[in-house]
């Protein structure tokens, strides 16, 4: 079992600005599988990815990547681990002053001294994989949102990572680029065997490609398992509300406050 788990998180707790985001959570990410982390906005899904990448320190708990602790390690070990991880940021996070080609070449140029011809070949391969070889001379400002995200994906896989984390990859995409991205994520996972973690609230899209799912709400995991398992848990009202997107349920439509009658009485007093 230990062999098949690529990334294991044990008893993770984290709070920010005195607000508890995660309370004693356990995750297991299987090697070569797509794991989705679903949950409403503001629950700390992006924070979870930053914790995995070591950009934020954990309050307590362990994060093991290839059975190696990466939550309290030296800077060197953390940087070595990061070379095996790719991350697709929600905004793309492309470098504005570099062309598409140079953006994808950036991690290669930073970490290796490659012959220019070899480097160009590698970059063109990555761009070909996301279908944007023709856009190599454009600047990030000239790209559409979907294209920028594909370039960022090419950059995230430039170092041939074992693990790729996707932060809200489908948010704000038109139907065509949404499907292109879905296809790409699935393709990278199946052809290169990349372990993938997708953080999202686009339930249907993500569940169409995911193998395993964690659903987060209220600082804890309210459901986990394979995609089929999740849909079978009909007695979990919160889960059902989230999966089906109902406006009423355990998560109320109204923000907490005094009753409407009381407020009106105050106004008319």
């Amino acid at each position: 079992m230990a062999q098949s788990n690529h990334l294991v998180i044990k008893k993770l707790s984290f709070s920010r600005n005195e607000r508890l985001l995660f309370d004693d959570l356990d995750f297991e990410f299987e090697r070569g599988k797509i794991t989705a982390i679903l949950g409403p906005s503001g629950i700390g899904k992006t924070t979870l990815l930053k914790l995995i990448g070591g950009q934020l320190p954990v309050d307590s708990g362990e994060i093991l990547f290839n059975n190696q602790a990466i939550h309290n390690c030296s800077e060197k070990v953390r940087y070595q681990a990061r070379q095996k991880m790719g991350m697709l940021f929600q905004s793309g996070a492309l470098f504005n002053d570099l062309s598409v080609f140079e953006n994808v070449a950036f991690p290669l140029r930073e970490h290796f001294k490659l012959e220019e011809s070899l480097l160009q070949t590698l970059v063109l391969m990555k761009l070909e994989a996301v279908g944007l070889r023709g856009a190599k001379d454009l600047k990030p400002a000239e790209l559409s949102g979907g294209m920028a995200r594909r370039v960022a994906l090419a950059r995230a896989i430039a170092l041939d990572p074992e693990l790729v984390m996707y932060d809200e990859p489908f948010t704000g995409q038109d139907p065509i680029s949404m499907n292109v991205l879905l296809k790409l994520v699935k393709q990278l996972n199946s052809t290169l065997g990349i372990t993938s973690i997708i953080v999202s609230h686009d339930v249907n899209e993500v569940l169409s490609i995911a193998d395993n799912v964690y659903v987060l709400a209220e600082q804890s995991i309210i459901a986990s398992g394979s995609v089929d398992d999740i849909f079978k848990q009909t007695d979990n009202a919160l889960l059902q509300q989230f999966l089906l997107g109902k406006s009423e349920g355990p998560v109320p439509f109204h923000f907490k406050g005094a009753s409407f009658a009381d407020d009106l009485e105050q106004v008319n007093r």
């Binding site: 950009q55 990061r82 905004s91 492309l94 504005n96 970490h111």
Partner: peptide, 18 residues
């Protein structure tokens, strides 16, 4: 500041570049 707000700094860190 712009590099920070567009996550360019964070993405650099994730590419193991200080």
């Amino acid at each position: 500041g712009l590099m920070q707000s567009t996550e360019q700094i964070a993405s650099m860190e994730m590419m193991a570049v200080s």
